[in-house]
């Protein structure tokens, strides 16, 4: 892994704080919560019907190479019997609200696929990290 300057890390933490809940309860680890709060927290993330939303951008998006590769990877994993689209959907929901609503459409697919491969022991964390390092070096992404 490359080194990260302290100012870059501070900027990263500022971004992390922007994802933390703005509203805190009496304690950050409550001993009990209301039934309504529990049901709200367990609400299936993709079930957005009835929630307010802004205008939808209907302009056509030309898929980038990584997006096509992600789609192909997901389909090949299904072809080889490692998951089905419903499991991918559940795994995207299980990323949680911050990742679900904060990441691009195909980034959710990618995160769900990586976690599925780890969960099922099809790859090891070491293999994943080694590949990410390889891609980072190849693409010359600053650490």
């Amino acid at each position: 892994m490359g080194t990260k300057s302290s100012s870059a890390y501070a900027a990263l933490m500022e971004c992390v704080r922007s994802h933390a809940p703005a509203e805190h309860g009496v304690a950050n680890l409550p001993l009990s919560i209301s039934q309504t709060r529990a049901e709200a927290l367990l609400h299936v993330v993709h079930d957005v019907g009835g929630q307010p939303d802004g205008p939808i951008d209907k302009s056509l998006h030309k898929p980038a190479h990584w997006e096509k590769s992600t789609h192909c990877t997901a389909e090949c994993l299904a072809w080889r019997g490692h998951w089905v689209s419903e499991e991918r959907r559940r795994r995207e929901n299980d990323l949680g609200e911050a990742l679900y609503f904060g990441t691009p459409y195909y980034a959710r697919w990618l995160l769900a696929a990586a976690k599925m491969l780890l969960d099922k022991g099809l790859i090891t964390p070491d293999e994943l990290l080694a590949k990410m390092e390889e891609v980072r070096a190849r693409e010359e992404i600053a650490a």
């Binding site: 299936v44 079930d47 019907g49 009835g50």
Partner: peptide, 11 residues
């Protein structure tokens, strides 16, 4: 209860 995942919309 949805038991963590369902396609049945809450509404």
């Amino acid at each position: 209860p949805p038991v963590f995942h369902t396609r049945t919309q809450g509404y």
